[in-house]
Simulated scan of single mutants.
Amino acid sequence: MKLDRYRKNLQGEVVGPDEKFLKRKQVLELCGISLSHLYYLMNKGKFPKSHRLSHRSAVWLESDINLWRSMNADAFYKEYGEQIKAQQLGEGAAA
């Protein structure tokens, strides 16, 4: 079984059937931030990246959002910032 085909959360675990996908509005409500701040944090590597479902739809993994909510933004960046930026670079290279 090739695990690289499957979505993974920030901790590197394959997303299971009990994982919830959150839409942008749900993420904003849970985190108490504005849309512009959400994208600012994502660009800085201080917020989990979204997962594309289609060309018009993106979601966030509930486990990633809960992980972010349990940490402050700077601690999150120290732990996962490089990983998020590497993912962003990988997507840019593929496009």
Rank of each mutant, 00 (worst) to 15 (best):
M1W: 15
K2N: 14
K2S: 12
L3W: 09
L3G: 07
D4C: 06
R7L: 12
R7F: 10
R7V: 12
K8C: 03
N9Y: 02
L10C: 01
Q11R: 15
G12K: 10
V14P: 07
P17E: 14
P17K: 15
D18G: 10
E19T: 11
E19N: 10
K20R: 15
F21D: 05
L22R: 14
Q26Y: 12
L28C: 13
L30Y: 13
C31P: 09
G32M: 09
I33N: 10
I33L: 02
L38A: 01
L38E: 04
Y40P: 00
Y40L: 08
L41M: 03
N43F: 02
K46E: 03
K46R: 07
F47P: 00
F47W: 02
P48N: 10
S50D: 09
H51A: 00
R52Q: 04
R52V: 03
R52N: 03
L53V: 09
R56L: 08
A58R: 02
A58H: 12
V59L: 08
L61M: 06
L61Y: 03
S63C: 05
S63Q: 09
I65S: 12
L67V: 08
W68E: 07
R69N: 09
R69G: 05
M71P: 03
D74C: 00
A75N: 08
K78N: 05
E79Y: 05
A86Q: 12
L89V: 05
G92S: 09
A95M: 06
